[in-house]
C-alpha cells in the first residue's frame, strides 16, 4: 500500500512538473515581432517564445533540437508564413508539434494569410533568385498590418483558451486603440518621406516601402538570396551617381560589406534599421520599432550627403 501511494505521489509530482497548475498559453512565434505582438494581445495570460532572434535571418535557421522541444510544448503557433520558414518549420511540425498546431487548426496562425501579400510573382523560376511563389513574406513592416493580425490572434486565443476570451478581446481593443493613434502620427510624419529613394540589401523592406510610399531604387543582391557581386555593385554605383539615393538600408542580419562599400564610394549613408524587436522584448517594443525606423529614415532624408 505504501509503495502504491508513493508511486501515485511520484506520478502527481511528475505531472506537476510537466504542466504547472496555472499554465499560461504557450505561443511559439517564429520571429520576435510576432512574440512581441502576442505579448500585447495575450498580456500575462500567455508566454511567448521566439524561435529566432534579431541577428538571425529567419529564412536560414535549422530545425535544431531546442526548437523541437519548444514546439512540443506549444499551444499556438504564430509565424510569418508565405514560405519564410519553409526550410525548418515543416520538420518541427512533423516531428513534435501537437495536433492542434497543424495546418488548418486554429493553433496554426500564419500572418501572411491575413494581410495582402506584395510581390506575388507570376513567373517562378530559380534563375530569378530565391523568390517565394507565395509572395514577399516580410509582412510586419507595414504597421497597418499589425491591427488585423492582433484581432485575428485574439480570435484564435479565444478558441485555444476560452476562459480568457474576454481578457484577450479587451487587451486587443486597448492595443488597437493605442496602435491606431500611433499609426496616425507615423503616417503624418511619413508624408515628408514620400518618394524617398533607397537602395536596400534584400527585399526585406517591401512592406515598409509600400506603406510609407518610399521608393526602392535597387537591391544590393542581384537576385533575392544571391550575394552581391562586384559587377552588380558597380552597376549600383552608376545608378546612384545618376539619380538621387538617400540611404542604403539593411537589416541587423544582412552582411555589412556591400552596403559599406557602396556607401564609401558614394557618400550615401548606409543604415541598419532595426527590422524587428529583441527576442524577449517587453510590451511596447513593437511601437518602439516603428518609432525608431521612422526616426532613422527622417534623419537620413534630411541629411544632404556628400555624394550628391
Amino acid at each position: 500500500m505504501a509503495r502504491k501511494s508513493s508511486l501515485i505521489a511520484m506520478v502527481l509530482l511528475g505531472m506537476a512538473f510537466a504542466s504547472p497548475a496555472f499554465a499560461k498559453i504557450r505561443i511559439f512565434a517564429c520571429e520576435p515581432e510576432w512574440a512581441a505582438l502576442a505579448r500585447e494581445v495575450g498580456g500575462n495570460r500567455v508566454e511567448a517564445f521566439s524561435a529566432t532572434h534579431k541577428q538571425q535571418d529567419p529564412h536560414h535557421i535549422r530545425a535544431k533540437p531546442s526548437l523541437i522541444a519548444s514546439m512540443r510544448h506549444a499551444d499556438l503557433l504564430f509565424c510569418s508564413g508565405a514560405g519564410l520558414e519553409v526550410g525548418w518549420l515543416p520538420i518541427l511540425l512533423r516531428q513534435a508539434a501537437p495536433a492542434d498546431l497543424q495546418p488548418g487548426q486554429p493553433g496554426h496562425f500564419m500572418a501572411a494569410d491575413y494581410v495582402s501579400v506584395l510581390e506575388k510573382p507570376a513567373i517562378v523560376d530559380r534563375s530569378l533568385g530565391d523568390i517565394h511563389p507565395e509572395g514577399n513574406p516580410h509582412v510586419h513592416l507595414d504597421a497597418r498590418n499589425i491591427v488585423p493580425l492582433a484581432q485575428e490572434l485574439s480570435r484564435r486565443l479565444a478558441i485555444v483558451d476560452p476562459p480568457n476570451a474576454q481578457v484577450y478581446a479587451e487587451q486587443t481593443d486597448a492595443f488597437v486603440r493605442r496602435w491606431s493613434h500611433k499609426l496616425a502620427g507615423w503616417e503624418a510624419r511619413a508624408a515628408k518621406l514620400e518618394g524617398m529613394p533607397l537602395i536596400v540589401h534584400h527585399k526585406s523592406w517591401a512592406y515598409l516601402v509600400h506603406w510609407l510610399g518610399l521608393k526602392q531604387v535597387a537591391t544590393l543582391e542581384p537576385r533575392p538570396g544571391i550575394q552581391p557581386t562586384p559587377g552588380h555593385l558597380n552597376e549600383l554605383l552608376k545608378i546612384s551617381r545618376t539619380q538621387p539615393v538617400k540611404a542604403i538600408l539593411r537589416t541587423p542580419y544582412d552582411p555589412s560589406e556591400a552596403s559599406g562599400w557602396l556607401s564609401s564610394k558614394t557618400g550615401i549613408p548606409a543604415i541598419t534599421l532595426p527590422y524587428t524587436v529583441e527576442k524577449g522584448a517587453a510590451t511596447g517594443a513593437l511601437q518602439a520599432l516603428f518609432e525608431e525606423t521612422i526616426a532613422l529614415l527622417e534623419k537620413a532624408n534630411k541629411a544632404d550627403h556628400a555624394g550628391q
Partner: peptide, 10 residues
C-alpha cells in the same frame, strides 16, 4: 554548431 554573429547564414 556555433554562429559567431548569431546568424548562421553569415
Amino acid at each position: 554548431t556555433w554562429a559567431p554573429t548569431g546568424n548562421p547564414k553569415q
